[in-house]
Design a protein around this nucleic acid. Structure first.
Lengths: 150, 150
DNA sequence: TCTTGACCTGGAGTGCGCTCCAAGTTTCAT
DNA sequence: ATGAAACTTGGAGCGCACTCCAGGTCAAGA
């Protein structure tokens, strides 16, 4: 009737370690998992789905406290649906903002890379006659580093 | 000739704390900063530019070891330009991948939110006659949570 | 001169998110 | 029946990235 998974199987499916799974339960991210008569944990597909959601939230930078809060709300059932939705929407906003910031960082990074390329070009492309000493070039061209004012 | 900033000023400009600035110097992210005769740190605009680059790298998730490596290369001057560029390009790739992953998480989040909205709609939109007990609804509708199988 | 505030150093402390360990069951294949 | 593998618990340990503290020096205005 109900498929049940061992902690090992869940670890494989989710990529979490056994220790981490138990740890998440300890800190309240997972509600206490069902047990076999032996005391071994038996995870339901629902548990797995929940873990997968948690991982998304974690990977998108949701603070631990917020995740615990979300887990608590979930335990209280559908009555808290709106509150949970608001929490997720808030997180969504934060994530959007974060992504915009990353875009900006990316642009700056691209710029930095092309500045370094210029340095490389000057270095490789101006081999007038014989090779000058390394130190001369080193001193002359290091300017790229401080080019970063913007 | 050369503008110099106190640690306080740099903290304000960069958003880092005094302690963090000193800490970065200790672990080699910043090369030893110039000192006033008194022993107080005097940061140059170049230092600030470097810190700003570091912050970008940090905020885009570059591992600390890689940042230290990058700092070391920079100290060695233009001779290491290519190596530095490769390092940045590698980081850029990692960042692109990360951003794609975030997009996916974002999509999943949107889906999750609309599922919760359905729950809310069922709850609010089916007030046939009188209000039923809270507990009844709670049990019936909690399905949304395990809907997360994909 | 005195005091206040900015700065210095070395080192200890913190919170997060695991990760590892020891000592003791339980399960399972042979 | 036996031994290895899987599981349990409570608690200690770890790496990161700061953050705080004590005890001292330095700078500048009343």
């Amino acid at each position: 009737m109900e498929t049940a998974f061992t902690i090992q199987q869940v670890a494989q499916r989710t990529g979490l370690s056994l220790d981490t799974l138990r740890y998440y339960e300890r800190i309240g991210l997972l509600e206490p998992v069902e047990r076999a008569p032996s005391g071994h944990r038996r995870y339901t597909p629902r548990d797995i789905a929940w873990i997968e959601l948690l991982l998304r939230l974690r990977d998108t930078g949701m603070p631990r406290a917020q995740m615990v809060r979300f887990a608590e709300l979930r335990r209280q059932g559908d009555a808290t649906a709106t509150e949970r939705r608001l929490l997720l929407e808030q997180h969504q906003c934060a994530l959007e903002q974060r992504m915009r910031q990353l875009e900006q960082h990316m642009a700056a990074l691209r710029q930095k890379i092309s500045r370094i390329k210029e340095v490389e070009a000057r270095r490789d492309g101006t081999p007038q006659g014989v090779a000058g000493t390394e130190s001369q070039r080193t001193i002359r061209l290091e300017a790229d580093v401080e080019d970063q004012r913007a």
